[in-house]
Design a protein around this nucleic acid. Structure first.
Lengths: 116, 116
DNA sequence: TCTCATACTTACTTTTTTGTCAGTCCCTTA
DNA sequence: TAAGGGACTGACAAAAAAGTAAGTATGAGA
C-alpha cells in the first residue's frame, strides 16, 4: 500500500512532475512490464497464455502489472462472455507508441552489455 | 542488502539476461539516476554542487547512486589532492551515449502526460 | 590543539515492491 | 451434485529500495 505523505512518495511525485524520463519509468518500469509489452507487441494474448509464456511470473504479479498497464492506458482488457471465461489483452495505440522507445532502450542496453 | 538466492533476485537476473530493456533499467532506473545524468550532461560537477542542485536528495542517496553509475561505467569520479577536498563527477563516453535514450524517454513520457 | 570545509559512511527505520499460496467466481458438462 | 477450466483476488511474508541522522576522514590554517 502506498503512503502518500512519505518522503519517498513526495520525492517520487516531484521527480515525476519534473522529468519525463521518470514519468516514463513509472509507466514501463515495473519488474515484468517490458516483457509484457514485448509479448503484447506480438499481438493479442489471453491471461493464461501470458502466464505460461513468461517464465517465473506469478499470477499476482501478472494481474497486478496488467492492471497498471491498463490503468495507464497502454493495454486494453477485453472480457468475452463465454464459458470458460476468456479475457484478452492487447496494446492500445499508446502502448504501441512505446515500441520505438523499447527498441531504443533494448539496443542501448545490449550495446552496453558487450564491453571489456 | 541483496540476497542472491531470492526468487526476486533470480527473476530479475533472468530478465536482465534476456532483455536489453530490463538491463538498461538497471543502469538508469534508480530513483535519482535520470536527474543525475541530466545534471552531468550539463558538464562536470562536484559532490556538493550536485547535492545542492538536486532538491530532496539525501547525501546517502547521492553517494549511492553516483557509486552505482560509476561502477556501471556511466560516470567518472575524480579526486583532486586539494584541501578542502575536491571530487568531481562527469559522464564517461558510455554515460554520454545515454543522452539520445534519455531524450527519447523524456519525449515519450511527456507526450503521454498530456492526454484526455 | 581546535575548528573548518568537503566528501562521504554507517547503523538503523520506514516504505515499497515482489513473492507465496490458498481461495473465489462463473458458468458448463458429467 | 460435483468437477473443471479460466481468470483472477486476498492475506501474509520476504526482500529490496529509500530515508534519517549522526559519525568519520583529511589536511589546512588560526
Amino acid at each position: 500500500m502506498r503512503k502518500l505523505t512519505s518522503t519517498n512518495a513526495i520525492n517520487e511525485a516531484s521527480l515525476v512532475r519534473n522529468c519525463g524520463v521518470v514519468y516514463a519509468l513509472t509507466l514501463i518500469g515495473g519488474r515484468w512490464k517490458p516483457t509484457l509489452l514485448f509479448s503484447l507487441l506480438g499481438g493479442t494474448m489471453r491471461y493464461n497464455q501470458l502466464l505460461k509464456s513468461i517464465p517465473g511470473i506469478s499470477e499476482r504479479m501478472l494481474a497486478a502489472q496488467l492492471r497498471e498497464l491498463e490503468k495507464d492506458g497502454l493495454v486494453k482488457r477485453t472480457v468475452y462472455a463465454e464459458v470458460p471465461q476468456r479475457v484478452e489483452y492487447e496494446l492500445t495505440a499508446l502502448g504501441m507508441s512505446a515500441a520505438p522507445l523499447l527498441r531504443t532502450m533494448s539496443e542501448w542496453g545490449n550495446s552496453l552489455r558487450e564491453r571489456p
